[in-house]
Nucleic acid binder design. Structure first.
Lengths: 214, 214
DNA sequence: TAGATTGTTAATCGATTAACAATC
DNA sequence: TAGATTGTTAATCGATTAACAATC
């Protein structure tokens, strides 16, 4: 997939989804081809950086022409693993869990949500978009028996590590954690700790940033 | 606030909220002091990096002792602008908007949410945690008349730029955008485009990452 | 005081940008 | 063909790490 198995830096990896999204928008707008210069202008990156990033994975462009938008998006999707299906569960069926369950882009990209879990007896047994909410007691068994690869944590921070542990004991491969506490994972399990409020605090920092005296 | 008005890099700024959160947890656990070494171990950073980061803003530690946890958290909160109150509105009262409205950490840190807006007539007039949902038609007037500084966008991507424009025409200072399309802002307005799915796609990348051959 | 740990400078490492030959 | 634009190497820039004198 990537050139002679050299590790790609996280800086590059974190830009890939953004490329994927912008290219998707271009496809929607009927754009067939694009140069690194044009794409850079659109995304706020340099043309040089875009070519460097893409060439970590291969030469997808053509001299004198640029990149075929549809082809490039497909390639990046494949690099990101979006050509596969992932069996998912959401733990925590509050507003955030429901928001994710309702997001249609989620299933479109191959995330097969099959169950949600909660502690609240008033939620257990309900369904959200045909997805049943189960008792969190049954999480471990469910993950194991249904070959769940991806667990999404939307519980309060006090419960997040416990939920992650249950998932890992039953063979989960990846955890997407929205609780505002970093979850620790064992080897061979990958984690994204989202901590949404961090981007809010970055924003308030920027609101108050002292202007430079030159 | 920061040493002789030198611009602090975004790499540093984006770590500040994480320091703030970890220090808050330490306070909750009754920890009074901490060294850069211990904090680094906890957060997965080097001691050196922590000292470098903090010294962008001043010398908050003491040789031979380390840092006073409570004092340091307070200082970082002040640097992030969390000692102030921000008048906020949320536009889009779906699950995600409601999740943010319900998040108690939000008001605790000085974010004064006074109204929500939506296009859906079935939502308009309802309240969420005492916050009334208004017709999105009234957004501009409301932002102007109530001195709203921070706008939170939780609408579909097709509407996000329009909502942002209305906010900016009426004097908003900052936009926290959850729509999966980057919103463009004028000078003097700060923006955080969150694009939650990007961290999910990073996760699937990591799940499929080829193991290094050495 | 001795030990610990900071603040800060210097060294290293990695990421971004620039440049240009290759080529469509 | 001439023009455009890639892929890739080299140069630059910035961020991280290491080292250590200062000092609590």
């Amino acid at each position: 997939m990537q050139k002679n198995s050299v590790k790609v830096s996280m800086a590059v990896v974190r830009r890939l989804p953004k490329y994927y999204r912008y290219l998707g928008d271009l496809i929607q707008n009927g754009v067939m081809r694009i140069s690194s210069k044009e794409l850079g202008k659109l995304m706020g990156l340099t043309a040089s950086q875009i070519r460097q990033d893409l060439n970590c994975f291969g030469g997808f462009g053509q001299q004198g022409y640029g990149y075929n938008v549809e082809e490039l998006q497909k390639e990046i999707g494949r690099i990101l693993g979006l050509n596969q299906t992932y069996n998912c569960v959401i733990v925590g069926a509050g507003n955030l869990g429901q928001a994710i369950a309702n997001y249609e882009g989620f299933r479109r990209e191959g995330f097969a949500l099959s169950a949600m879990f909660d502690v609240n007896p008033r939620l257990i047994g309900n369904t959200i978009r045909d997805i049943k909410i189960y008792d969190i007691q049954d999480l471990g068994t469910y993950v194991l028996e249904n070959d769940i690869q991806l667990g999404i944590i939307c519980v309060p921070k006090e419960q997040s590590q416990g939920v992650a542990d249950t998932m890992m004991e039953n063979g989960i491969k990846a955890i997407w954690n929205f609780a505002p506490a970093d979850v620790q994972v064992r080897d061979n399990v990958v984690i994204e700790n989202v901590a949404i409020s961090e981007s809010l605090y970055t924003l308030t920092y920027l609101m108050n940033e002292p202007q430079l005296e030159i």
